[in-house]
Nucleic acid binder design. Structure first.
Lengths: 360, 360
DNA sequence: CTGTTAGCGCCTTCAG
DNA sequence: CTGAAGGCGCTAACAG
């Protein structure tokens, strides 16, 4: 009872037309130049026979897989998750699918994954870069496959990017703390190799300097972007002889680490605990006791925007290739350089939890 | 400067061999029956020319895409996240890649995604079913593409499945609460259409009955598996004239909703708040104030196990197809029916947070 | 509007 | 152990 796979030829025969007509009728970009009548005949035959186009054959011919790949440093991350959902949704709406790969925070792995996706003829790649350089990404982009960076910029890759307003978000976060009367404020977490961290530190610094506050060696405790870095960072803060009364966390993971450390510390009585303003927001943020403000990135929107860029680039490529004149010998892409988009962040205020608990 | 894509023929020419030899040498399952010498020559030529096999062409010929698809009701979910990481990791290790699709909690969408993946010739599918029936999944499985269910079972699809020990986990969770002296215990959340919920309710009921406790109409407040269901469930509990002193949450989302409701309620003084034992565990669980126990599922392990199953089925299929005798006319797969695997859960105890805060 | 005709790049018998 | 040859199923000119 094994069902053989039905081919376009059989459908053509059944409908009494040629394979070309069937192909045209069932084209993913709509049936153009096919009469209503034959269109119906073909549809009828195809659906009766349960015809499903062979994707590989189609790809081989068209050099397009209707697939977009995404490479992230890790999959287990709330930001990535929201991003992926945004991307997958937008993609599915356009008849594309999403290939997912993890670079495991390694540039080497990232290179391999890029190669793998390229081999699979993805029409575009969304990447959250693992390192500070992205020459391998640029190489791809300059050939056939559009690349769009998300969340972070890298050097050596002039490609499209969708980012949050990191500088502005950190600035705003710091301003809120200042407005609440805090003066001894420190920044926790960061990595000079990561553009996102640099921008956030810049925003923080600007707000502090504008407020006439001094930055000393302990004001900015970068040292990583992971949970453990927040944990140790908070440890250092708590040990400090003159501890700050408010902190800015570089991201979700560092924030989490900081709260964990605080959770342990809390047991010791008689000390005012610092308040935290942090980048990133999740469903669990209301439960983090020290958190007073967050700068919420709209990851889903970033995903959608990234897809839109990719699809635009794909369309451009098509028209360029179809245009009668070949590519100009001049260096640089004639389709208009890289474009960087900044999406705004939303500042969210949490009240209650911390104070509430203290009162009990 | 546009790099043309290098084909197998060019490599063959450069290495002074035939395309067949290159193909054999560069086969993904290792170069068999090629002399050491030619193998090296081919490798050298291929890498010098930057040859990358055209995946579509290969798929067209071999009818395998070295890709596994996953369909989940939603992507933004901690359980799914860990699962995906487990799957992607294991897959990459085997030279496969992962196609991700969301069914948006709709069986209709799920059907479409299944069709889409099938069209793309995925070698297997991992699915977390959206509904209670899975005839469309069985249909796939019986033809060419192995399917493995994760987390939930469905009716009408005798396919492999990887599940947690839901009954046992809920039983154990309830036992812990009983051991702590709680007697008025309610179960919150659930959906009769979802096997996971049924099993967890069964485990809860068993523990209660064994303890000689009575189940009345308010003991089990199913009514959904989402955050909002936990929220309203907890609302009802709090309004109850004789509120329970401990609760069992059916899953992560319901648990979250319950905690949210509690967070609001907390403001009113003078009432002992119930303790929660919940299925699922995340990095944020330590911050959920009412949580005393969780039953942690090992999602990454489930992912790995699912991949192992899929790959096994793929291998079986190959050998069956290669075997000289055709398929036996008898109904049923001769490769040994469906296999259901149950992975144990780990009970985690949280102490401190709740009590601590009360003390202040 | 529809049919004919070439391949896309690779794998895989079948000979040698 | 290696080479020659025939498609896999589909699309995209090019005619008609």
């Amino acid at each position: 009872m094994r069902e053989r796979t039905v081919t376009i030829r059989e459908v053509a025969a059944a409908a009494g037309v040629s394979t070309a007509t069937v192909s045209r009728t069932l084209s993913p970009d709509g049936a153009e130049g096919v009469s209503e009548e034959t269109r119906l005949r073909v549809f009828a035959a195809a659906s009766k026979m349960g015809y499903r186009a062979n994707h590989a054959a189609r790809s081989l011919k068209t050099r397009s897989s209707r697939t977009v790949g995404i490479i992230a440093p890790e999959l287990t991350n709330d930001f990535f998750m929201d991003l992926a959902e945004g991307i997958a949704g937008e993609l599915e709406r356009q008849g594309y699918t999403l290939l997912v790969a993890s670079s495991a925070n390694s540039v080497e792995e990232e290179k391999k994954r890029v190669a793998m996706l390229a081999e699979r003829m993805v029409d575009g790649m969304v990447v959250i870069p693992a390192g500070s350089r992205g020459d391998h990404l640029a190489a791809r982009a300059l050939r056939r496959t559009p690349v769009v960076l998300v969340d972070r910029l890298v050097e050596g890759a002039d490609v499209d990017a969708v980012l949050s307003d990191n500088e502005g978000g950190a600035y705003e976060l710091t301003r809120r703390l200042l407005a609440d009367g805090f003066r001894r404020i420190c920044f926790v977490g960061g990595d000079a190799a990561i553009s996102t961290a640099r921008e956030r530190i810049a925003g923080f610094s600007r707000a502090m300097l504008e407020a006439g506050l001094h930055l000393n060696g302990e004001t900015i405790r970068s040292g990583g972007m992971e949970v453990r870095d927040g944990y140790t960072g908070m440890g250092a803060v708590l040990e400090s002889p003159s501890p700050p009364d408010a902190l800015v966390a570089v991201n979700l993971l560092v924030h989490l680490g900081m709260e964990r450390r605080l959770l342990e510390y809390r047991r010791r009585p008689g000390r005012v605990l610092p308040v935290i303003a942090a980048f990133d927001e999740t469903a669990y943020t209301p439960f983090l006791p020290a958190c007073r403000y967050t700068a919420a990135q709209d990851a889903a929107a970033m995903g959608k925007e990234a897809v839109r860029r990719i699809l635009e680039r794909i369309a451009e490529r098509r028209t360029v290739e179809k245009s009668p004149v070949g590519r100009s010998p001049l260096a640089g892409e004639e389709t208009g350089g890289e474009r960087i988009i900044r999406l705004p962040v939303t500042i969210v205020r949490y009240r209650g939890s911390q104070e509430d608990r203290r009162r009990r």
